[in-house]
């Protein structure tokens, strides 16, 4: 075999490897299933209960925050809006925007990271999700939080992440009331999770002991469930 023949063989071999790559696409989910449990365990271990460092307020990048929507933009009437909190709680709640505004307000200037690869620094303000869950007298039997949205987007979180001090039910973005496209009147935000975990137009919170069949709109399509940052 001379050098030219070998080169041909190499090119042929590598292109068949790429063709093999197409057949390998069918194995993606199996690779994920085999490796995600360990990865998620490590992610949960890495994630402390303390705050992660925040950005200076002047670092926000409003233009960099792209809008992704699963099912259009639902318009919610602020007057009729209620946040339902139920499940494993001692005191189920139905909170209007006034009740949320009466709780302690917090701001978190964080990097909002999308699974697609882009990121934007955003200042989210609102109440701590932990404060709402404590107000509802969260049961020690609770392990997961299911989040329903007005556009039928669905999410589920581990409670440790939900109780993180920087996990907010945000009503404001970059100092102004939350725009409809970004989840008005109430959305979930946290610097410790990828963007698709941060549901917009949140209308219902349910505390459960176990995860059900449905783990999330995108998770059920193949995205990671823990999705920690």
């Amino acid at each position: 075999m001379n050098r030219r023949q070998l080169l041909g063989l190499g090119l042929g071999g590598s292109s068949s490897l790429f063709l093999g790559g197409c057949a390998l696409n069918g194995l993606s989910a199996a690779v994920g299933d085999a490796t995600q449990p360990l990865n998620e365990r490590i992610e949960a271990l890495l994630q402390g209960q303390g705050k992660v460092p925040e950005f200076r307020p002047d670092k926000v990048e409003p233009a960099a925050l792209l809008v992704n929507s699963f099912n259009g933009v639902p318009r919610l009437d602020p007057e009729r809006y209620r946040l339902q909190v139920k499940g494993l709680v001692g005191r189920p709640l139905s909170l209007d925007l006034g009740a949320l505004a009466a709780l302690p307000q917090h701001t978190c200037v964080m990097r909002h990271v999308c699974v697609e690869g882009w990121a934007a620094v955003v200042a989210w303000s609102g109440v701590r999700l932990a404060d709402v869950l404590r107000l509802a007298q969260l049961s020690p039997l609770g392990g997961y939080l299911l989040i329903d949205s007005a556009d039928s987007y669905f999410e589920s979180w581990d409670l440790a992440s939900a109780l993180h001090p920087q996990t907010l039910l945000a009503t404001h973005m970059n100092g102004a009331p939350l725009p409809a496209a970004n989840g008005a009147p109430v959305r979930l935000t946290a610097p410790i999770k990828l963007g698709y975990k941060q549901s917009k137009w949140v209308t219902g919170l349910r505390v459960t002991a176990q995860l059900g069949e449905r783990r999330g709109t995108w998770e059920d399509q193949g995205y990671e469930w823990f999705a920690g940052l």
Binding site: G21, V31, G32, A34, T35, N39, V115
Partner: peptide, 19 residues
Amino acid sequence: ELFTLGGWLAGGRDWHFGF
């Protein structure tokens, strides 16, 4: 597509974080 593996974003992430 010839140079990619996974078929779509979640598939690519399966391989990337799996390996």
